[in-house]
Design a protein around this nucleic acid. Structure first.
Length: 273
DNA sequence: TACCAGGACGTGC
DNA sequence: GCACGTCATGGT
């Protein structure tokens, strides 16, 4: 089943390449996108962006298609910060995804002190080895492993996939989630969720903010990594020391718009706009 | 070779 | 509470 959307505010490249998602690959005129155990083919002709999937409802929500991103771009421009205005207008089609929560937890544990191409490779190999094989009109693929599959796996699976020292974090946190589930996280407010996430092995402030933002849609989260730290120093002329203090300053400044602003700035800085 | 990448943990103070 | 060393791995 296909659904289409105005491509001005839905650009597959911007949306997938901005660092919020790690499981996608070029395919024909666009990309194959994997989330949890699902797959979609997304492509654009410059006028319409099309989602082709057996799970249209899931991906309608996944790509946040109910939201009007013209308002988001206007909001970002209104702050009158050069990099932010430039990035928001160059990346009008960047949308914040609603991703699978457990997948976000494990993916961003892997992301720490790592780079995006390598993160994608590690996740891909873990899916191949522990995820269920599925078939689709676009070919076979692997689902993201369940927490029980991760918890039961020998730790060497993570190590040999390239996870390095993060192997023990994956093992320990998957065992905890396998035992506790994550349903109790869903009702929490941003602050309480962040605190709870920090109690998992391998989740620190930055990873917690990414999980809260991309998995739980807590838009008052502002993940501060090396790139945002660079933005803070170079573009904001900030003088605060320490990522936690910088994150507090940025969430105080941008409030419920933090998540959108963060992605524009992160992607814009990486693209050297 | 040393440094960097969507940092977090353990220890010492 | 804060500072600091350490933790795999691949690319530049």
């Amino acid at each position: 089943m296909k659904i289409d959307f105005d491509s001005t505010y839905f650009n597959p490249t911007h949306t997938l390449d901005c660092g919020q998602v790690f499981r996608f690959s070029p395919y024909k005129d666009g990309y194959l996108v994997n989330s949890a155990d699902k797959i979609a083919y997304v492509y654009s002709d410059g006028v319409k962006t099309v989602i082709d999937s057996d799970e249209p409802d899931y991906f309608y929500n996944y790509f946040d298609l109910e939201r009007d991103y013209s308002e988001i771009v206007n909001m970002a421009s209104a702050f009158d910060i050069p990099l932010l205005t430039k990035s928001a207008n160059a990346c009008k089609g960047l949308r914040i995804l609603n991703q699978n929560r457990e997948e976000m937890i494990y993916s961003f544990i892997i992301s720490q002190n790592n780079n995006i191409p390598r993160i994608k490779g590690i996740i891909s190999r873990i899916c191949e080895r522990l995820g269920e094989k599925r078939s689709s009109p676009f070919g076979d693929y692997f689902a993201f492993p369940s927490s029980s599959a991760l918890a039961d796996a020998d730790i060497s699976v993570f190590t040999s996939a390239g996870a390095g020292y993060r192997d023990a974090y994956l093992k320990e946190t998957s065992q905890r989630i396998c035992a506790e589930g994550i349903a109790h996280l869903e009702a929490l407010g941003s602050k309480e969720l962040r605190e709870k996430l920090l109690s998992y092995k391998g989740i620190g402030p930055k990873v917690a903010d990414c999980v809260a933002l991309f998995g739980f849609r807590k838009m008052d989260s502002f993940p501060v990594d090396t790139w945002i730290e660079k933005v803070y120093v170079e573009d904001f002329k900030g003088t605060l020391k320490g990522r936690e203090k910088i994150a507090k300053y940025l969430t105080d400044t941008f409030g419920e718009n933090s998540g959108y602003v963060q992605q524009y700035l992160f992607y814009g800085k990486r693209l050297n706009l």
